[in-house]
Simulated assay, not measured.
Amino acid sequence: MTQPTSHRPTSVWALRAPGLLFAAAIGLASMLLARIPAVESIGMSALPLAIILGIFIGNTFFPRIAGNLGAGLDYSRTMLLRAGIVLFGFRLTFQDILGVGLSGVVIAVLIVASVFLLAIWLGRLLGMDRDLAMLIGSGASICGAAAVMATEPVVKAQAHKVSVAVATVVVFGTIGMFLYPFLRVPFGLDAHAYGVYAGSTIHEVAQVVVAGRAVSQEAANTAVIEKMIRVILLAPFLLTLSAWMRAKSGGTGKSKLVIPWFAILFLCVGAFNSLHLLPKAWVDAILLFDTFLLATAMAALGLRTHAIAIKQAGMRPMLLAGLLFVYLIVGGLAINLGVQALLG
């Protein structure tokens, strides 16, 4: 006899629960590790830590215990990811834009557009997979690991490609975090100009904070505001990418028009947060939960990533990311100085 429809949701969640709990445990562990002062001092946030832990566990003892964890892991890296991106909107307010003015907005738009288009062009020259080049480009141009994860549903990339792209964010974002404070004096940047430069060109939010604080608190505040403008651009970027991919395919095939509703909701949440209707304690709690959701999604992705697939990707992804890193330093500086000269 067929099971009553009313019982089916319970059975679905019972199927998902083991994988969800396993990924959540890794996500929680990554959040706790990220709070260790030594880890925090190098700008390693919970998200990259979660995927690193996931890949390590996924390629050691996990295959022996995987069993019935698949359904929960797949749910974590899809639905929990989208929910996490939506709540990511609580990290920004549109008032942040006022802190850096029109020039800060123009700089962010030019950086995002030029880095992503350069990634596609260089990826083609290097003979790379287009999806992987776009994932690396999104991570370098917008907001690191979170942007890579948000781009994945649009390009429908395989798990190992997402992991490779996140790895490039970890490597070059970390290098940039330590390198940038030494560039301020040779480049002739005051605290404000340095903050805009760092915020517009460094990969991860945590890395931006560390690079800014190494100079001054003023530089850190400006850097984070500029970084948040890049985060705001995530939604229009995803919508534009989806339309572009459909146009490239002639409106058929894999690249059908995908409306990333989670990106639109992300903007709506940002708009709501701009009204400051919720107490700060509530927003802080939401952000903590959001980090947990994203870390859980990252952990699930790592568990689904096989080391052999990363090895097969070769050195070209790192070469592409390295070239983009050089462009962010040199081209990013040129964009910053040029826009500031024109707009002040």
Score class of each variant (00 low, 15 high):
20 L>E: 06
20 L>A: 09
22 F>W: 10
23 A>V: 03
23 A>F: 04
23 A>T: 04
24 A>F: 13
24 A>D: 09
25 A>S: 12
27 G>F: 01
28 L>E: 06
29 A>S: 11
29 A>P: 03
29 A>Q: 07
30 S>C: 05
31 M>A: 12
33 L>W: 02
34 A>E: 01
36 I>W: 15
38 A>Y: 08
39 V>H: 04
39 V>M: 04
40 E>A: 15
41 S>C: 07
43 G>T: 09
43 G>Q: 04
44 M>N: 04
44 M>Q: 10
45 S>R: 03
46 A>F: 09
46 A>V: 11
46 A>S: 13
46 A>M: 14
47 L>W: 08
47 L>R: 04
47 L>Q: 05
47 L>N: 05
49 L>V: 07
49 L>G: 00
49 L>S: 01
49 L>R: 02
51 I>S: 01
51 I>K: 05
52 I>P: 00
52 I>S: 01
53 L>D: 00
55 I>M: 11
56 F>P: 03
56 F>R: 08
57 I>R: 02
57 I>V: 15
57 I>C: 02
57 I>E: 00
58 G>D: 04
60 T>H: 10
61 F>I: 13
61 F>W: 13
62 F>P: 03
62 F>K: 09
64 R>W: 10
65 I>G: 10
66 A>S: 15
67 G>R: 15
68 N>P: 13
68 N>M: 13
69 L>N: 14
69 L>C: 15
71 A>R: 12
72 G>H: 05
73 L>A: 06
73 L>W: 06
75 Y>C: 10
75 Y>M: 12
76 S>P: 08
76 S>K: 08
77 R>I: 12
77 R>A: 11
78 T>F: 12
79 M>T: 13
79 M>A: 13
81 L>D: 01
81 L>F: 02
82 R>T: 05
83 A>R: 13
83 A>Y: 10
83 A>S: 13
84 G>Y: 01
84 G>S: 07
84 G>M: 04
85 I>M: 04
85 I>H: 03
87 L>Y: 05
88 F>M: 13
89 G>H: 09
90 F>R: 08
90 F>M: 09
93 T>C: 07
93 T>G: 10
93 T>E: 06
94 F>G: 05
95 Q>H: 15
